[in-house]
């Protein structure tokens, strides 16, 4: 082994242990062995979030004064809020306001979109709503917005370009919208993490479900808020018309990304064994699919 090779191996090993240390140290199952998952229903997205975050100890339990926050909604498509393909803009605004009220030094919002970035940011209503609430909306459609990271624990995607804002943030809040998905079957919290990675072609080429699970190892969200107010039940993830939408008026909140997705499946009535990335996430020790291991709080708002 020459020096260069040694240094390379050392670097990869360090990166790998860093990621592992982070996963174990962050205490995935808080409290007496159970992970709390909050399900709220029957209100508008803003009030669903207000009730739900209360049950998780309020925004102050996640954001300490002076910390920088990333809010990562789903802004993938050039569609209007009513078409339900993106996260509700008022929800992104409310999370931004609460994070700033909790003392956050700043809130950054971005998503690596599928359609033209400018059009998605604008027509989803998210850029305007987030900016009005005080967030900084940054682009994610240029390779310069990303930085390369490696991850030894990943199964397929051992190297990825990850959005700079995500790497810089102290606190990361994942705010997906719940949808039926032609390829991945369901898109919610875990699938939303494709939007922090630059190279989607690699992910599609190399076993998409595995790459979805791998992507979360690069930076696990501290809080997941699944917007299931409008749920796209057919023709997802883009949708063809508002006939694909059912107003379920649900929201699921948890620190555990796998648990949140597991419960989201019940809202769109789909079997967990057909969504392979959930088990892959569990194998990565990102969370649990076992409802018995969850402390589920149900709230009628």
């Amino acid at each position: 082994m020459d020096r260069r090779e040694f240094l390379k191996t050392a670097a990869v090993a360090t990166a790998a242990t860093t990621v592992h240390w982070r996963s174990s140290a962050e205490n995935l199952l808080p409290g007496p062995g159970k992970t709390r998952v909050v399900a709220v229903r029957n209100a508008d997205p803003v009030n669903l979030f207000r009730k739900g975050i209360e049950a998780l100890g309020g925004m102050k339990a996640f954001v300490k004064p002076g910390q920088s926050v990333v809010v990562k909604p789903n802004i993938a498509w050039d569609r209007t809020p009513e078409e339900g393909a993106n996260t509700s803009p008022e929800l992104v605004a409310e999370i931004t306001r609460q994070a700033l009220a909790a003392g956050a030094s700043g809130v950054t919002v971005f998503d690596h979109t599928c359609n033209n970035g400018e059009r998605c940011y604008k027509n989803s209503g998210i850029a305007a709503a987030a900016q009005e609430a005080g967030a900084r909306v940054v682009s994610a459609d240029k390779i310069q917005d990303y930085q390369e990271r490696t991850c030894g624990a990943a199964v397929r995607m051992k190297r990825a370009l990850v959005h700079q804002a995500l790497l810089d943030a102290d606190v990361v809040i994942n705010v997906p919208v719940l949808k039926n998905h032609g390829g991945a079957k369901m898109t919610a919290a875990m699938k939303n993490w494709m939007g922090v990675v630059w190279d989607r072609r690699f992910m599609h080429q190399n076993n998409l479900p595995q790459c979805i699970a791998d992507s979360i190892l690069y930076r696990k969200p501290d809080l997941n808020v699944i917007d299931a107010y409008r749920v796209m039940v057919a023709n997802g993830p883009r949708g063809v018309s508002t006939a694909d939408i059912v107003e379920r008026k649900y929201m699921i909140l948890s620190r555990d990304i796998v648990a949140a997705d597991t419960l989201a499946l019940k809202v769109i009535d789909y079997p967990a064994e057909k969504v392979p990335y959930l088990a892959m996430g569990e194998a990565h020790k990102l969370g649990t699919m076992d409802t018995a291991a969850m402390d589920i709080v149900r709230i009628d708002a």
Binding site: G183, A184, H204, N207, P237
Partner: peptide
């Protein structure tokens, strides 16, 4: 390989 990139992006539901 699970992919679905084409169907995911198709705006008319043709795929």
């Amino acid at each position: 390989v699970h992919c679905g990139a084409c169907a995911e992006h198709c705006p008319t539901g043709a795929l």
